[in-house]
Amino acid sequence: MAVLVILESEAGQIRQASRSAVAAASKHGEIDVLIAGDEAAAQAAAKLPGVRTVLHAPGKEISEGLAEPLASLIVASATAYDHIVSASTAAGKNIMPRVAALLDVQIIPDVVAVVDSDTFVRPIYAGNALATVCSSDAKKVLTIRSTAFEPVPAEGGSAAIVPMPAAPASDASRIVSVTVAQSERPELDTARIVVSGGRGLKGSEAFHDVLEPLADRLGAAVGASRAAVDEGYAPNDLQVGQTGKIVAPELYLAVGISGAIQHLAGMKDSKIIVAINKDAEAPIFQVADYGLVGDLFEVIPQLTAAL
């Protein structure tokens, strides 16, 4: 019994979501990890506690993370494993269903609990129901929701690194450009505190001038509702919800967010939820531990000053 965990790295560090995937996988036996990236990424993977072997795919092409070569590489390595696991990140969601199809396996996405080696719990209907499903496939291909599993530490192990053969070059798919927002703030999906803004902010100026000072005072990540992203107040990668990022911080402040079920699906597992909205009837108050009815343009600067 062995598990293969597909890791992602950023600037030579293993992403926290991937470390949560290792934690979820640790229930299934010996853990090997596969990482595409530079030598520093492989070294970081080798330090994860509990990892037996690092399968390292070096080279620029494979490190770009395109689904086709990476899925082929994972499938070629799959024989020795009963479970193939990644985090439910944008990359994991892109690649793992393709891997599952190539192995003739039904993928089990967004796992929030592991019952046994065949049985897993996952949310459906925007988190309004939790389904426990048992797989009859010989191999299981899973993505795990990182907020549901405490990540393993970044250090403590010393796994062997085994280089993987290079993927054959292909022109079927290639990267044209990548635009990644640079931010000094913590990452949205792993931040201890998240300050999210909705349609009530009325514009991107208020995101900068009203919401961000509060986030910076708290050392928080900034999030947004779908409405705010659709209106162009905030970039897409800040969207919290059923189809955006799933977050579960210790403190979630929902500012000017009405609380559509699709938004609640992305944040209702937060430990403490604060809602600030001028509409006392807004559904967000039903999930909030602390609600404050008021004009955010008055309340948020006061709150920022009071902290």
């Binding site: 049985t119 309004n128 939790l130 426990t132 048992c134 209702k268 531990d289």
Partner: peptide, 18 residues
């Protein structure tokens, strides 16, 4: 390939205060 063992409602949050 998947058998649904059970489907349950997630635990409700405790009511908060204003």
């Amino acid at each position: 390939r998947l058998t649904v063992v059970s489907v349950v409602e997630p635990s409700e949050r405790k009511p908060g205060v204003k």
